[in-house]
Amino acid sequence: EVIIGQDELVDEVSGLYTIEGRVSPPDSIFSPTQGGGRSAPVNKNTPKWHTEITLSINDGEFKGFVREDGQFMISGVPSGSYILDVHHPDVFYEPVRVEINPKGKFRARKVNFVQPAQIMQVAYPLRVKPLMPFKYFQTREQWKITDFLFSPMVLMMVLPLLLMLVLPKMINDPETKKEIDNLQFPKMGNDMPEISEMLTSLLTGKQPEPKEKKPAPAVRQAKKRKDQ
């Protein structure tokens, strides 16, 4: 049989949309001054940085890949509210919430899980920038001489020893002996009035006790519990 007619079927997109944007390379978070001082974990000259990035929506239900110039698109997404995650094994990209209303209008805003009603718009088409490299590992404790010297054990042992060595030599000088005697005398005089003052304050302290008792029974606040 032969072809009976040729119909033109126009592709009509019904209810599905395309999310577009651009991802910045990971090396843009390392400034040249920083790069000179240390070796960056992501080499800025890597030509295949975009192969290590995947974009996913709804737990991998929709996925996108990044092209050489950083552009990406995720096709066939129905209307709704989605969180677009950008995954790189070594660099953190901030997720973006993308909302598409049934008429096809796009809105992008920051992700806020604690207060979802708070809206902070971001530009659409999306510009996803790297924030910081992931820090997966803790730092080992390094042995430093300063840590050793300033540890409490060393301070308690060494400082009294130094005092014991230094003070007897000072006392040998007769001039310093006189000075010490003079210093000690006023101290003795000062201590006596202080003791008497303390005694009088203790006696007078009994009188305001009934006043203090009144505010003592404080009412405990009931703990509020967040219910689902």
């Binding site: 592709d11 009509e12 395309t18 030509p47 295949k48 192969t51 890949f65 092209r67 096709s75 066939g76």
Partner: peptide, 21 residues
């Protein structure tokens, strides 16, 4: 989804899609 790939490093070169009626 129709995608073109660079097979040396697994990079996406281009993509387009069609939606059937």
């Amino acid at each position: 989804l129709v995608r073109g790939w660079n097979t040396n490093m697994g990079a996406l070169e281009w993509e387009w899609s069609i939606m059937p009626m």
